[in-house]
Amino acid sequence: MKAPDFDYLRPSSLDVALAMLIEHDGEAMPLAGGQSLMPMMNFRVAAPEALIDLADLTELRGITVDTDTVRIGAMTRYAELMSDPTVQAHIPLIGMALPHIAHDAVRNRGTIGGSLALADPAAEMPALMLALDASIEVAGPDGTRMIKADDFFLGMFETALDDELITAIHVPVATPAQRFGFHELTQRHGDYALAGVAIAKTDDSYCAAFFGVADRATRVPELEAALTRQDNIKTVLTHLDQIDFTDDLKANHTTRQRLAGVALTRALKGMTQ
């Protein structure tokens, strides 16, 4: 199928882009890497009046690090994240996850900001943000604000964005005391996971974010508390009951819950040392 027709807009600055977004009053969609939006348009599932291509917004590029935070421009591609020494050194969890995300040709176009704005519940990136306690920097008509990852994902393909664009992601620099774990279960390499989890352990406290299991990337505070208390794994896993697991063709909710438990167990075993 061919995409329906649309106006193609290519703003040269963030301000212009935001003005375009307002002007089109919900009928325009920002185009980042296009690796999810283009398929939806090619299926005629998405039919925006206009596409606002963010490619020329230099404000949305670049990876910088200050003492305790890495700032990643929203238009940073997965491939750039993979090859960036700052990300590899300071955010090892992203490095662990990236090889599991799609394939080279997609990682060469797909962006971190695009993935977060889409909020696909099966995608890895939202869960990574939760686990890393990242903040999403967004710009809108009223200026710029920071949204904690925990407050950003509101549901399936639903975020806290309100006529706003993601400009950057702020991720705390990993401390020497932190440990990370990641595991996902896919039948085929690069597919969306049947269940997956990203874990950050800071001192003794755990943050575990699941993906592919519910309508959004999900943390379970009781489960994290149980991990922190070093409860036995069986007890830990009972807290998965808190998640409203998805039923779909590949796995029903019971299977998903079981697989989430396996992913968690294996991620814990594989934590960085």
Binding site: R10, Q35, N42, D53, D104, A105, N108
Partner: peptide, 13 residues
């Protein structure tokens, strides 16, 4: 120099 999916990129891009 990078491999991409030709169906997931607009000609104008």
């Amino acid at each position: 120099g990078d491999t991409v999916r030709g169906c997931l990129m607009l000609a104008t891009q």
